[in-house]
């Protein structure tokens, strides 16, 4: 569930409720929506970047040496990356509670 973080007094609100911090949604971690997580097998990966391109949640991010890694803070576990990886280098594994 959404963390209730809009608790503010009316005097603390910025003009017209404007938000001046770009991308402040990064404070909202969507990773806990996930029931399965992608695991990348670098031996199979050809560094094509499709997983990065197709992730709706910007959770496949460029990593060292041209590989891509999952950002579990935001990954919702949709499985698009695994489905679209041309080398089947990504496997979805169940999250354990």
């Amino acid at each position: 569930m959404a963390k209730i973080d809009a608790i503010m007094g009316w005097k603390e609100l910025d003009l017209g409720c404007v938000i001046r911090q770009p991308g402040s949604s990064r404070a909202f971690k969507t990773g806990d929506w996930r029931s399965q997580r992608p695991v990348v097998d670098r031996d199979k990966c050809i560094k094509c970047g499709l997983c990065w391109v197709y992730c709706p949640d910007l959770s496949m991010v460029p990593a060292e040496e041209g590989y891509y890694k999952v950002n579990l803070d935001y990954c919702k576990g949709c499985g698009i990356c695994a489905k679209e990886c041309p080398k089947d280098a990504i496997t979805m594994v169940l999250e354990e509670d």
């Binding site: 959404a2 991308g23 402040s24 709706p56 949640d57 910007l58 919702k76 576990g77 698009i80």
Partner: peptide, 14 residues
């Protein structure tokens, strides 16, 4: 940025 609240696998936000 990430942290948006689209459903899992949303094609629209993509």
């Amino acid at each position: 940025a990430s942290g948006h609240r689209a459903c899992q696998g949303c094609g629209e936000v993509l």
